[in-house]
Design a binder for these strands. Structure first.
Lengths: 149, 149
DNA sequence: CTATTATTGCAACAGAATTACAACAGCATA
DNA sequence: TATGCTGTTGTAATTCTGTTGCAATAATAG
């Protein structure tokens, strides 16, 4: 769990204060690892007895995002929910930050597509235009095997 | 504009009724071609003197989505807006349905990445798991050339 | 330990999307 | 062409997400 230390250091060097709510959000993100919405973060924390206002969650996430400690993940299907993913230090494998969702437009089911080649292809394409790629999200729409039958 | 006829036929064969609001939405989508939100659809139609309730727009879009006549596009950056894209008959070029956005996490700017290889790579990967790919959306996060300097 | 000020929490608000229900209109039938 | 069934629409109200203004609080420097 180097994430906590990394995040706190980033905060400090950027002139932000190390507050209790911020530490709680950081710890939760580092523990959960999967994308969570602002409201899910608040609920998780309150279940543990740590009250936090939803407004603070939004502001903390915004701050963490600016510092590159967190990034927004597009929620598949239901579009109007904002989800977040912890952004580990660059030493960690890149694949952790990538999501490839297969969304069937008929039954609505979502599966994950495993395709490591995509990462390298995208990294190269992005590099060509001077873009330093850190993560990517991919949503594939179509018809799944079951519904096609 | 084969889309209108195609859409109406799909509706009919699925047992849906051909109503005035549905035709208006279909015509608008076929004309605009780019992703539009439910509220934008309503506003566009009302500007032309055709009053339609926002609730109906949502229901019509849901219906069209089920039939594969429309699909949702993830809005980059601001996540809580729902956008739609017309789904042309399969004869049209696949590239129309694909979006590759480069989102800089520092300055927030969004550019389009042109990379035709991705489509074929994805189609093959999806095919391997029995998924018939119809469209895809890709969001690339990282640091753009300007902010990296 | 104290003072400064960033940060939090509260309250109110704005916008997106959904639900319940009565009125309406498409379509099959006569 | 008229008529009745029922799928659809529109209205109103509600839920959920996200934002803004402001007073109270707490983190950090000195």
């Amino acid at each position: 769990m180097a994430y906590r230390a990394h995040a706190l250091a980033r905060l400090k060097e950027a002139g932000f204060r190390i507050t209790t709510p911020r530490q709680r959000v950081i710890d939760l993100l580092a523990e959960v690892l999967e994308p969570v919405s602002a409201y899910e973060i608040r609920d998780h924390l309150e279940q543990r007895g740590a009250r936090i206002d939803i407004v603070s969650v939004y502001r903390i996430l915004e701050c963490l995002e600016q510092l590159g400690l967190v990034h927004r993940v597009l929620s598949s299907g239901k579009v109007h929910r904002c989800v977040i993913e912890a952004h580990e230090p660059c030493s960690l494998p890149q694949t952790d930050h990538c999501h490839h969702s297969l969304v069937c437009r008929r039954c609505g089911r979502i599966e994950e597509l495993h395709c490591p080649d995509i990462g390298t292809l995208l990294a190269r394409a992005a590099e060509n235009v001077g873009f330093a790629l850190e993560h990517h999200q991919l949503e594939l729409g179509g018809t799944c095997r079951r519904c096609a039958a």
